[in-house]
């Protein structure tokens, strides 16, 4: 039996034919990084390979590590392997990794979603023999509403808060989710009427916004909290910040405010109440249950290996449908706040 094209090593996924790792958890000589979220992009690698739009984000997050770009969809020889990157639709620059060795093709999905997102490349289905998929939201209860409908709910909430004299704080992961929320709100027909002044963003979000704008993503103008005119310090505002900011001194500067989490986890009331004890809006950068099943089908893979989240459930469903599937046990992070 030939050696598997991709193996699980203690440090993470490894491609023996190319002698490189994919999203390793420990420092390695050479790593392909699918996207710039902290649980995939770790510091200390000798060299990083990434998509064109990921590069600036990785250099921002991991200063000092050299990043080489692999242009989208272009096949590069690495040892006995041929490797290419394809958009995963998770956040700006997020990539699936296609690895071909001796005419056998494997695809590592990384994190991905199927919903349209004005702030990143659209997911592209890549045919393969073995598909390694994530399973963060692999349960039938996870199904995402239309982003436009979510934007309507968010704007209604903002308007209600303002009527009560309160500011509105949207808690969203600073890389990807925050930009998507901004863009989705901005393109809603009622955005101008409800939002008025530019949205206030936390510095962590502002830094990523700049990188998105540099990459040509159309984001509405935003401002920092310091930029509020002195006379308007008490007027209700709309702000976006990463979840860790909740309850911080920065958040206190918003004055009386309501907060809301923006995440796929908000689908479940118990999780919403535990993480937020407040309002939750359902906008996820991962595939929902129908999205996972559709993607696996479109890949045409003979075999599916499942990582992250709920591999047990997805594996059993696939097996019952006659697809060879197995959990890929490895050093994955447990499902985090990001989602």
């Amino acid at each position: 039996m030939p050696e598997p094209v991709i193996q699980v090593r203690p440090e993470g996924l490894y491609v023996p034919a190319a002698d490189l790792h994919i999203d390793p958890r420990r420092a390695v000589r050479r790593a392909i990084i699918t996207h710039a979220h902290a649980d995939h992009a770790r510091a200390g690698h000798g060299r990083i390979l990434a998509s064109p739009t990921s590069r600036a984000l990785l250099e921002h997050r991991l200063p000092g590590t050299p990043v080489s770009v692999l242009p989208w969809r272009t096949r590069h020889p690495f040892g006995k392997a041929t490797i290419s990157l394809h958009p995963a639709g998770h956040v700006l620059g997020s990539a699936q990794v296609r690895v071909e060795v001796d005419r056998e093709t494997w695809v590592v999905s990384g994190d991905y979603k199927r919903q349209a997102d004005p702030t990143c490349e659209t997911f592209e289905s890549v045919p393969c023999d073995t598909f390694i998929t994530e399973a963060t939201f692999a349960l039938p209860v996870y199904r995402w509403p239309e982003p436009a409908d979510v934007a309507t709910d968010v704007l209604r909430w903002i308007r209600h808060n303002r009527d009560q004299g309160r500011s509105s704080l949207l808690l969203a992961y600073s890389l990807g989710k925050a930009q998507r929320v901004l863009a989705e709100l901005h393109r809603h027909p009622e955005a101008q009427a409800v939002l008025g002044d530019p949205v206030v963003v936390h510095d962590a979000v502002a830094a990523i916004n700049q990188l998105y704008r540099d990459a040509g993503i159309d984001l509405p103008p935003t401002r920092r909290i310091e930029d509020r005119p002195t006379g308007e310090r008490r007027a209700p505002i709309v702000a976006i910040a990463p979840p860790a900011v909740d309850g911080s001194r920065w958040a206190k500067r918003l004055g009386v405010h309501d907060h809301a989490f923006v995440s796929g986890w908000m689908r479940i009331r118990g999780i919403r109440r535990r993480r937020a004890a407040s309002r939750g809006f359902l906008l996820s950068d991962h595939a929902d249950w129908p999205g996972l099943l559709r993607t696996i089908e479109e890949s045409g893979a003979r075999r599916v290996l499942v990582t992250h989240g709920r591999p047990d459930v997805l594996v059993r469903v696939l097996r019952e449908r006659g697809v060879a599937a197995a959990p890929l046990e490895g050093p994955w992070e447990p499902a985090g706040e990001e989602g």
């Binding site: 349960l139 039938p140 209860v141 199904r143 689908r267 479940i268 009331r269 118990g270 459930v313 469903v317």
Partner: peptide
């Protein structure tokens, strides 16, 4: 699959609605 969902959601009516 419904039972797995119920185990995660923790509430029968909510699981049904979802």
């Amino acid at each position: 699959l419904f039972e797995e969902s119920y185990a995660t959601v923790g509430d029968l009516a909510e699981t049904i609605a979802l």
